[in-house]
Design a protein around this nucleic acid. Structure first.
Ligand SMILES: [Mn+2]
Ligand SMILES: [Mn+2]
Ligand SMILES: [Zn+2]
Ligand SMILES: [Zn+2]
Lengths: 133, 133
DNA sequence: GTTTAAAGGAGAAAAATTATCTATAATCTT
DNA sequence: AAGATTATAGATAATTTTTCTCCTTTAAAC
């Protein structure tokens, strides 16, 4: 029994081949849209239903096994849940990368400024990556 | 000829009553989803088509007359374009507020760290507002 | 191996968004 | 101000995206 199998079961999800493949794809590609995921999944499971992708993505979201990343002007992408982090997105090539930034100061400022209890900070930095300048 | 009329024309948009109302609603409410906008618009224009809302929102987005704000777990909202700013969103009552935070330090750090030319920073702080604690 | 509860696939259905068409209204031209 | 020009609104169809239903298959438990 491999890694992902245990991870899925820990989240009350049966470890089906389709799910293991989804996890595998997300692990390999990092951030994937529904469409991109379906495209790679159909190669492994020629008869997989798009509904299966949606159902699993939604289930995994509910179980916080994965996270949705909303991007300006683009479709959402999904990734395996890991420590909170921010993202960069290249507007030319569309490449999305993780970036660890210390947002504590900002969050604290905001919290006191607005008397607001902050539980999550979603930051997307858009621009042009080094390969696209 | 009022304010909005001129603003719309400056963006190559004819100042129709429907558009003026959309601008007015966004000005009054701040951040609105497509549905919320349609709901208030139908009160003023009983026969307005949802397609008109979509067409105008998309046109105004193209002309950067308005901006889309993508929110975790919720539908996008739209607002009149103003100076770049961040948002807080209460997960209890759904209230969205503007907040001006100095992200320069963060942006610069990210830029040098990843050799990435940043043109835009979208930050949404989720949590619980003072009215909902 | 048998049981059972969950998941997959096919396709229908629903929801969201966009496109097409025509009458009308906003702006431009005189 | 009147007429010409062009973009827009609204009705509706079409398309796209997402969810649901139903039945079969399969993973997990015993
Ligand atoms: Mn990430
Ligand atoms: Mn705002
Ligand atoms: Zn790039
Ligand atoms: Zn609240």
């Amino acid at each position: 029994m491999n890694n992902y199998t245990q991870m899925l079961r820990n989240h009350n999800l049966k470890a089906t081949p389709q799910r293991l493949a989804i996890v595998d794809m997300l692990y390999m590609h990092g951030h994937m849209s529904i469409d991109a995921l379906y495209e790679v999944m159909i190669k492994r499971f020629s008869s997989i239903s798009l509904a299966t992708i949606y159902k699993n993505i939604n289930l995994m979201l509910e179980n916080t096994f994965i996270q949705e990343v909303k991007l300006p002007n683009f479709k959402s992408v999904y990734e395996l849940t890991k420590e909170s982090h921010s993202h960069t997105m290249c507007e030319k090539c569309g490449k999305i990368n993780d970036i660890n930034l210390d947002l504590d100061a900002i969050v604290n400022t905001a919290s006191t400024l607005k008397n607001f209890e902050i539980t999550k900070a979603d930051l997307v930095l858009s621009g042009v990556c080094k390969n696209c300048v």
